[in-house]
């Protein structure tokens, strides 16, 4: 790991990670919350209603960002699984433990907001539709990642099983992405393509992209906060943790 800059090498040490990352979390929380307030207020009060869906389209400013990051967090967990299997990096396991509950709740929010949006738009909160079903499978995969850690008593075996589940489960992500293309579905096709045209009117892009960026920043902050907790629990017997408990450290 000598190719990494010194500040990154320092973060590989649990003690320095725990101490250094606190200030990052504060900034990520502040930026994420301010961004979400700006994007959401803008989307709720300062853009006109959509021509076909009326005001219910304003759910998009929450639904799209959480749905995007529900999938990105899963991909990042699968990458951490590969890193753990190949390099046995402890921080990769810490990341998997910290990110899984965040991904679970983002997926639950994506499904919940989609169901609420479905009521005025489709006339039903639930349909056995490819996009909805594959997103529900994502929720089950996250639940599997959380539960597996609890039920396998040997930590090394648990991490191995989690890594395999994360990597195998990642096949669901392209299926979610292309479900609206491959199958007959009620869900509208993607409006944002990374390398393609954006079919959303320019007036709606500011609040949507502000919320996408803010959910990214806040998600990063929450995962780091979870990693910080995981780090201290796993190092509970170390001297630096004892001095932190006794208030001799930050």
């Amino acid at each position: 790991m000598k190719f990494l800059p010194s500040w990154m090498q320092r973060l590989a040490s649990p003690q320095y990670f725990f101490l250094d990352v606190k200030v990052w979390i504060v900034w990520l929380y502040v930026l994420g919350v301010v961004g979400l307030l700006v994007g959401s207020i803008w989307g709720l009060a300062f853009v006109p209603a959509e021509r076909l869906q009326g005001d219910s389209f304003r759910i998009m400013f929450v639904h799209v960002p959480v749905a995007i990051f529900a999938q990105i967090v899963y991909i990042s967990i699968a990458v951490a699984g590969v890193v753990h299997l190949v390099w046995k990096l402890k921080m990769a396991d810490v990341y998997m433990a910290a990110a899984a509950p965040v991904g679970f709740w983002l997926t639950a929010l994506a499904l919940g907001s989609g169901m609420i949006w479905g009521m005025p738009t489709w006339g039903t909160p639930w349909e056995w539709d490819a996009r909805i079903v594959t997103t529900f499978i994502l929720l089950i995969l996250y639940l599997g990642l959380i539960v597996l850690r609890q039920v396998i008593p040997n930590p090394a075996r648990a991490t191995f099983a989690l890594s395999i589940l994360a990597i195998v489960g990642a096949i669901n992500i392209p299926i979610i992405k292309y479900s609206v293309v491959w199958f007959e579905t009620l869900h509208q096709p993607a409006s944002i393509e990374l390398f393609g045209e954006i079919s959303i009117d320019a007036i709606y892009r500011f609040p949507l992209f502000t919320n996408i960026a803010s959910v990214f920043i806040l998600t990063a902050g929450i995962i780091l906060a979870n990693m910080r907790f995981e780090t201290i629990v796993r190092n509970a017997s170390k001297t630096w943790v004892r001095s932190w408990i006794q208030g001799r450290d930050r």
Binding site: A45, S56, V62, A108, L109, G221, I222
Partner: peptide, 29 residues
Amino acid sequence: LLTMDGHGIYVWSTYILTTIVLIGLGTFP
């Protein structure tokens, strides 16, 4: 702004639900 032509219940409940979950996720660690 509150009623949103009959869609207010859907829109506001989504934003309230999201706020509750994000506050929970952010404070839990």
